[in-house]
Design a protein around this nucleic acid. Structure first.
Lengths: 249, 249
DNA sequence: CTTGACCCTTACGCTACGTCATACCCTACC
DNA sequence: GGTAGGGTATGACGTAGCGTAAGGGTCAAG
């Protein structure tokens, strides 16, 4: 007849020694023998019982219930299992509801973000918002995420102010395309633009470098380099931004 | 500005006072003011925060996570919610598996029971098992349930023995239909029959009365009172059982 | 001033163990 | 026979989110 000490049985059954101690303490699984030194020794019968315990545990029964199941031969197994099934069905239903609520909430938040972004760029060249966001997401996903957070935290009035400032600043710059990018007037608008960008760019990091990157973005964007309106707007912006950024050092 | 003491806030939000104490202790929701006497006073802001806490709690977030959500404005809400959604989906999957296993187990047990009953009556008049079980279920559902438990607990060899004894006893009785139900030979078989019935009837109670009822059942069953084989078997059994039962007192 | 409703803190209980800390036991090797 | 390196034992605290007393102040109404 095989005898198992705690560690051996634990390994066979895939549980911890502490678990066996615990089961012994609460009387769920007691060793067949205690040696003179107090060692627990389990036999085949105990191993079998442990298997059953683990089965019911896997079924999410509480240990006290498992005790009842195994110790009371009068126990109506089928009924117990059916009760438990009902229990699980309720849990499942609850989770289902939670998932639906979560989906709604996520949807809500995402729409809110999108709205804000589109709002923010209202008054700017069409589709800039979406395009810019997409490009930014590819280059600096963390920054963009953070930025969206910032916007969501903002109060409606603050948000409105920021939006107006942005719009005004952008139009002013657009009207300066034929001026010298290094001129104080242009640089003043660029400085303001920089501040605005920072307001929702926000997160610390190499802001100057990021801003330079934004200049590259503008310059590379066909919407600002080609077309009818202001063919040189993109490169104008980049030159102004580069100059400004270099002054920051 | 409205002020709420613990009980009031608790009632409004539908939580316990202890919960508010707890939230204060862990810093999740601290009162706006502490009076000189140490009373907690909450304002509207705290009520709002509590609502949010409860929302996330409803979503099964841990309190520590809720703390992070509410206290860190940088928190990426959407990502957090999506993570949580994955978490719930896994839970759901697990429950699904559990339910399937449960169904299998229940099915297994029920089939096992049915099999046993049919096995038990193999060799007896056809369909007696099912019919008898049905009738018994209507009259003494608890007894029958218990009986089935007994059978399930029985070892295969014990079960086989019981089956054979039952079959032999029944055939012996059937062959005695033309004898005197009160004769010692018949009574001996009835006594054995009684013992066998008790073996899976088992549960204490008014066993003698139940056995008499079984006699009535036999006598009322057209299969034992009419037909070709042994037209008087039913009433023979009842007379024998009644006589036997009366001797028990 | 008393009563009753409300408030406070302290602290154990619950589930199923994980994780030390401290100390004893056992076997093998020298 | 001593010692090193296993394995073992018994506490006892920690976890999450409160429930549930115990023991004792506070406040407004009558």
């Amino acid at each position: 007849m095989a005898q198992y000490a705690v560690k051996k049985l634990a390994k066979i059954a895939g549980v911890s020694v502490r678990t066996l101690h615990h089961y012994d303490n609460i009387g769920l699984l007691q060793p067949a023998i205690r040696t003179a030194a107090g060692y627990r020794l389990y036999g085949e019968k105990e191993l079998l019982r442990l298997q059953q315990i683990l089965f019911y545990k896997e079924m999410d029964f509480e240990l006290s219930t498992i005790s009842d199941l195994l110790d009371d031969p009068e126990f109506d197994m089928v009924t117990a299992l059916q009760h438990h099934k009902q229990h699980l069905l309720q849990k499942q239903q609850r989770i289902q509801t939670l998932l639906q609520t979560l989906d709604k909430t996520i949807d809500h938040l995402q729409n809110k973000q999108k709205m804000n972004y589109e709002d923010l760029y209202k008054g700017l060249p069409k589709e800039q918002a979406a395009a810019w966001r997409k490009e930014a997401m590819e280059k600096w996903p963390d920054q963009v995420k953070h930025s969206e957070q910032q916007l969501l935290q903002m109060s409606p009035t603050d948000f409105e102010t920021l939006k107006t400032s942005f719009s005004t600043n952008w139009e002013t710059l657009a009207a300066m395309t034929d001026q010298d990018p290094h001129s104080p007037e242009v640089q003043e608008q660029i400085a303001q633009h920089y501040q605005l960008i920072l307001q929702f760019w926000g997160k610390p990091g190499n802001q100057a470098a990021a801003y330079k990157g934004l200049g590259d973005l503008y310059a590379a964007d066909p919407r600002y380099t080609a077309g009818k309106g202001q063919p040189a707007f993109g490169s104008f912006l980049r030159r102004a931004i580069y100059y400004f950024t270099d002054q920051l050092k």
